[in-house]
Design a protein around this nucleic acid. Structure first.
Lengths: 152, 152
DNA sequence: CACAACTAAGTTGTGCACAACTAAATGCCG
DNA sequence: CGGCATTTAGTTGTGCACAACTTAGTTGTG
């Protein structure tokens, strides 16, 4: 393979992933508009609906987001009345994020979102699972590469 | 499948794609630091290296980005001395983006990027191709869904 | 020809991602 | 016990994505 072909291939790969990510984001944006949530805010709410009260740190671990992203995002959720933030009593460095009644109630309205997304993809369950598996493998490999690369 | 399971599944799918996209971005960020480019700037340069002078409109079509994103991005590339922008003579609404000598020369240094990315993924050519095919199919379906959804 | 509809680029404002940094609380070790 | 490293949030600054809007140029139609 010649070098220009590598560049062309790279363009195709980067672009595909970049475009898929933004297309996904776009569909969620439309569906979530009614709920008053952005896509990253929805991700945070999904974690909270599933696991209840969590410190910002744990949220960040699960979503691979740092405090620079989460702090303002959670503040916006608080301003929207969906969560409350309070310093942990045991460890005062930690801030616990917990759902308000309103935040918990929003879950009911969110229940239809996944099914509509699934139908938007046109994929069936097994295809979704396969794609997910591949993406996770990719992410793990890339994270590893970024670590070793950064260390050089 | 019960409704909470749908939410949990949704969390997994969203998260996988979101994380993969950011992981990819992260690896490129590291590799592109030496070239002084961000990932979206690299995408623009790839298109220009391949196709030469283009109006902003065409760039946007190929990268699915609008002028709100491209205008400042291209200005930053111009400030970095990699491209020049000039009004088209035939159609004065249009702005042509063309590589400078420096911008064209940067291509040489970019040639090693794709191979390093490929090795970072740990995927071989056929796996990459398969993933790309699946992502493109997903993107097309999602774009279509967003369009019909938005029209409601 | 005149003027309305359309098109290309740019601007503004909001939110996310991330690097680099700060502040405060905690933990550990000599 | 005292002081220093570590941990947790938060802040600041840069850049991208996108919606909504503006401006200027072009096109089509009566």
């Amino acid at each position: 393979m010649t070098e220009p072909e590598w560049l062309r291939l790279d363009r195709q790969i980067c672009f595909s992933l970049h475009a898929a990510s933004r297309a996904f984001n776009g569909v969620y944006r439309v569906l979530l508009r009614d709920l008053g949530l952005t896509y990253p805010q929805y991700l945070v709410m999904l974690v909270l609906w599933e696991q209840g009260e969590l410190p910002v740190k744990k949220l960040g671990e699960q979503l691979r987001l740092d405090s620079g992203t989460l702090s303002p995002l959670v503040k916006r959720l608080e301003a929207a009345g969906l969560v409350r933030r309070e310093r942990s009593a045991e460890d005062e460095r930690s801030v616990l994020v917990r759902l308000t009644g309103e935040g918990a109630a929003l879950r009911e309205r969110a229940l239809e979102v996944p099914r509509r997304i699934m139908s938007a993809t046109g994929f069936d369950l097994s295809e979704i699972g396969e794609l997910r598996e591949r993406l996770d493998r990719l992410t793990a490999a890339l994270d590893e590469a970024a670590r070793t690369e950064a260390a050089r």
